[in-house]
Computed example of a mutant assay.
Amino acid sequence: MKDLPPSAKLVFFVLKEHDSLTQKQLSEESLLPSRTVRYAITQLQEIDAIETQVSFRDARQQVYSLSETGTEVANSFT
């Protein structure tokens, strides 16, 4: 986590506060541009901190949430 860019850390903590969000919702909640959120998601996926699922509402979208590893990291901050 320490080596991640600030945008990835922000996205991580937004996901910690919400169960799961789409990329658009992450962008709205974090106030980051969509492109920056995409980069942050990629960074978080590389360290297995988040997991991706297909949205039940719209199969064209993906929903992001903390993985088991991400949850353990999040719990270490509390």
Rank of each mutant, 00 (worst) to 15 (best):
M1A: 14
K2W: 00
K2L: 08
D3W: 01
L4R: 04
S7D: 10
S7F: 02
A8H: 05
A8M: 01
K9N: 09
L10I: 09
V11W: 00
V11R: 00
F12I: 02
F12Y: 03
F12E: 04
V14C: 01
V14E: 00
V14F: 00
L15M: 07
L15C: 09
E17Y: 00
E17P: 02
H18N: 12
H18R: 01
H18W: 03
H18V: 14
D19S: 09
D19L: 05
S20P: 01
L21A: 04
L21S: 03
Q23F: 07
Q23T: 15
K24R: 02
K24M: 05
K24D: 04
K24E: 05
K24L: 05
Q25M: 13
Q25D: 11
L26G: 03
L26Y: 02
S27D: 03
S27R: 01
S27K: 03
E29I: 06
S30E: 04
S30N: 09
L31W: 11
L31D: 10
L32V: 07
L32N: 01
L32M: 03
L32Y: 01
P33I: 03
P33Y: 05
S34V: 07
R35Y: 12
R35S: 14
R35H: 11
T36M: 14
T36Y: 11
T36W: 02
V37F: 03
V37W: 01
V37E: 03
R38F: 11
R38L: 13
Y39G: 11
Y39R: 11
A40G: 14
I41Q: 08
I41T: 06
I41E: 06
T42H: 10
T42R: 12
T42P: 06
T42I: 06
Q43D: 13
Q43M: 13
L44Y: 03
Q45A: 05
Q45T: 13
Q45L: 10
E46S: 14
E46K: 13
E46M: 08
E46L: 15
I47S: 03
A49R: 10
I50W: 12
I50G: 07
E51S: 07
T52W: 00
Q53E: 13
Q53P: 06
V54Q: 10
S55Q: 06
S55W: 05
S55T: 04
R57K: 15
D58A: 07
D58Y: 08
D58P: 04
A59I: 10
Q61R: 11
Q62D: 07
Q62T: 14
Q62V: 13
V63D: 04
L66A: 00
S67A: 06
S67N: 03
E68R: 10
T69H: 09
T69E: 13
T71K: 13
T71I: 12
T71M: 12
T71A: 08
E72K: 15
E72R: 12
E72M: 14
E72T: 15
V73C: 10
A74L: 02
N75S: 11
S76V: 15
F77T: 08
F77D: 09
T78P: 04
T78H: 13
